[in-house]
Design a protein around this nucleic acid. Structure first.
Lengths: 235, 235
DNA sequence: TAGATTTGTCACATAGTTGTTACATTAAAT
DNA sequence: ATTTAATGTAACAACTATGTGACAAATCTA
């Protein structure tokens, strides 16, 4: 189980040869990336769809679903802009390389490659993409919110909450450590329904806390007596 | 039904002369293709409709239904785009050849032909089509959708549904796990007809679920209360 | 044209969410 | 230590969102 508090990025490796997989996985982990491994195309696609992957290292010769198809599916999906695809081709597979770039792979590396070069390409790929990704994702400490999946996780455990609690957390996450007054929160979140007691905010903060507590015993929502609430790790 | 796991492709031969059939069948099998044999047009059509055929070798002079008719039927069917038709004509049947191409045959070979040339044409035909086919497939977990053929399968069982449910599933499948609001779905799917209630989306989601349920008891369409729907394996 | 299929809306049942209140608990001020 | 105001939270009724069968209108198909 890889420790997940690294913020370098999540790399998906799709490679059927165990020795290659080990080599890549070891080096990327050592550099601080989180690594997901898939041994064939189907598994790769599934992992891609289920996780917020920053970069894919994709072997071109795969059992079952081909690298070509995996790449096409990735690039067709609407998360495509977020994710950099580097394909790994054997020398001489020039046709595939051209088709791969046609379909939208962002880069390719010819085997055998130097690990140093590969790591450099990965770094650059992640750098390019990390900017675009921000709109869809909010992070603070171990909390991750993926807005268009409406999903919140703490330390990779999913938290479920009502719509208002979600919005509330979203506002807090957009400016961590900032203290919001009850009135400010009402204005931001209860945009249409204006005649709501300020005490209602307290109740929903309580509900948010309860949802978080189901997974994490440390209270991440701080009460600032006399002012309001903020998101903060208390220590 | 008889779909083995060779990845070269499935070829349907429609030819009434036993010696020709043997020659073709032997050579194609030797090259690694899967072969289906039909001795007349009717059988050919039947086999075509029941199998996922990549390429048809179609003799022009046939008992019962003529090659012309078979070709027309194939090209009229919904899987036409997936399937390459090569017609085999005797020297001098120029009229038929022109008519064949008119109707949508993709290539023709004049008898007597060299096997080498025929194999080359088959290879090229399959290559063209498999690229096209890959382009029109969407996958998530055990769901597979072939867009041009308008077919959806879960765990290899076919699901039938109305056109709107198909589009709906297609949109969801393009971004699995992403939550779409009813309005977003209306904008994407009801592009022309703009005055539709948002509740209509619910009804069609229900119909999609029902269609899926006929085959798979796990509900793959997730309701995200207060926001909309997404495609997801719930666990 | 007849028959089948598809479509949009409605009505009702069910299930989840929300705002409020009342009481408990806490923190600060005296 | 006592008082006071602010905050936490369980409970509950009202409200809102969703699932779904029924049905008539529209559309397609043979």
């Amino acid at each position: 189980m890889p420790r997940t508090t690294s913020n370098k990025g999540l790399v998906l490796i799709v490679e059927d040869e165990p020795s290659q997989m080990e080599l890549l996985s070891f080096n990327l982990t050592a550099e601080g990336y989180n690594v997901l491994r898939a041994e064939d195309g189907e598994e790769g696609l599934l992992l891609f769809q289920e996780n917020n992957v920053d970069l894919v290292l994709l072997d071109w010769m795969l059992p079952n679903t081909s690298g070509l198809e995996v790449c096409r599916q990735i690039k067709r999906s609407k998360r495509a802009t977020d994710c950099h695809v580097i394909m790994l081709t054997a020398r001489g597979e020039e046709d595939d390389r051209i088709r791969g770039l046609d379909i939208g792979a962002d880069d390719y590396i010819v085997k055998p490659y130097s690990i140093k070069e590969l790591l450099a390409r990965v770094r650059s790929g992640i750098r390019i993409r990390s900017a675009a990704k921000v709109d869809d994702m909010l992070t603070y400490g171990t909390i991750k919110m993926e807005i268009n999946r409406r999903s919140v996780t703490i330390k990779n455990s999913v938290i479920s909450m009502g719509p208002l609690e979600f919005k509330l957390l979203q506002v807090l996450l957009e400016s961590p450590k900032r203290v919001f007054s009850r009135t400010q929160l009402l204005e931001r979140i209860w945009t249409d329904n204006l005649d709501v007691e300020t005490r209602t905010v307290d109740v929903h903060i309580g509900r948010l806390r309860k949802a978080i507590r189901a997974v994490n015993n440390e209270d991440l929502v701080k009460t600032v007596r006399g002012f309001g609430y903020s998101l903060d790790n208390i220590s």
